[in-house]
Design a protein around this nucleic acid. Structure first.
Length: 333
DNA sequence: AACTCGGGGTG
DNA sequence: CACCCAGAGTT
């Protein structure tokens, strides 16, 4: 093993973050952690990791649960397809396969997650390239925009021969998360400083991805029935979750007519989704239908905001549609 | 290769 | 604000 590899592992042993899944070898638990961590910060994932495993401690428990229960456990974590894929995966296999190639075939497992599970839970010698590793390697080798395949082959070639590949992968990720930061990297504290070719201008590597943000103006129609608010199963965005009807603002007249209601404006909520800013005009109307208590359903954060906004207007007018509203989480109407 | 999918932290 | 986060799936 080369000196710099030894240096990184020594740094990792001394500086590794203490995380709930550190040292975990149960492949199911490793999988849940890795899926939750897809495009999600460690601090945000931790409470979901605990809650999800408490609710679904084994693959079998997950398999036996209704999808809606799984989505409810995922509520607020975002990228809800991840939860649906986990649930589907649990139906498809009796136990998790033990190789990278087989794991890669499962729904929701791409090159990163398959490699993470294979290396951490099963000790397979395969590189896991996440955003951290991409940044670390881009800087060490001064690459502005490396292709994923190039990066994977590079990372694969760096894996030490006789070390725990799971620990190695996590060492690179921790280095990216704690030292080789996107902005303001702490190069003087880096065990790879001596060999890093990008350290003179670390923020050039990799080149930032510029995404244009566009605004979208929508309307949310909160219909108050006899037992609560009208909810529908959402499709497209927030697939599989529930919420009040949400549509482009221009469609409000025909939507209102279809429900036979006269909506009144109830304010606006703002919500950001990937490279898009949503401005949602909230409309409220009494409705000749039943409706239901939204707390029983998995709701995206946007719908929590919409319902809170509607609730605020109702409270201001002294209207209490349901007598036993509890001041916790989403209000029931 | 480019787009889509949530939500939140940070400079 | 912009950019990023232990990415994957689709077009």
């Amino acid at each position: 093993m080369e000196a710099w590899q030894k240096a990184l592992l020594a740094w990792y042993r001394a500086q590794a973050r203490l995380l709930p899944w550190r040292g975990e070898k149960d492949p199911y638990r490793v999988l849940v952690a890795e899926v939750l961590l897809q495009q999600t910060r460690v601090a945000q994932a931790i409470p979901y990791y605990r809650r999800f495993l408490e609710r679904f401690p084994t693959l079998k428990a997950l398999r036996g649960a209704p999808l809606e229960e799984v989505l409810k456990a995922w509520q607020g974590a975002g990228y809800y397809r991840r939860a649906a894929n986990l649930h589907r995966l649990a139906q498809e296999v009796e136990a998790l396969p033990r190789s990278y190639a087989e794991l890669l075939k499962l729904p929701g497992l791409g090159p990163y997650t398959a490699a993470a599970v294979a290396s951490i839970a099963f000790g397979e010698r395969v590189a896991a390239v996440d955003g951290n590793v991409r940044r670390v390697l881009s800087r060490v080798f001064a690459l502005e925009n490396p292709a994923p395949k190039v990066l994977w082959e590079l990372a694969q070639g760096l894996l030490p021969e006789a070390e725990d590949p799971g620990a190695w992968n996590q060492a690179l990720m921790d280095l990216g998360a704690e030292v080789c930061l996107p902005r303001g990297p702490r190069c003087t504290a880096c065990p790879l400083e001596a060999l890093c070719r990008g350290k003179e201008a670390p923020e050039r590597f990799p080149r930032p991805r510029r995404r244009r943000v566009q605004e979208e103006i929508l309307a949310a129609l909160v219909l108050l029935g006899r037992k609560g608010v009208h909810l529908e199963r959402l499709s497209g965005r927030f697939q599989g979750l529930y919420g009040v009807p949400l549509f482009p603002l221009a469609e409000l007249p025909q939507r209102a007519e279809a429900f036979g209601v006269r909506p009144q404006p109830a304010g606006e909520v703002r919500h950001a989704v990937t490279h898009r800013r949503l401005r949602v005009q909230v409309y409220l109307a009494p409705w000749d239908g039943e409706g239901e208590d939204p707390r029983g359903r998995p709701l995206p954060k946007l719908m929590e905001k919409v319902l809170r906004q509607a609730q605020a207007l109702l409270a201001h007018e002294g209207v209490v549609p349901l007598p036993h509203a509890k001041p916790q989480g989403v209000e029931p109407f």
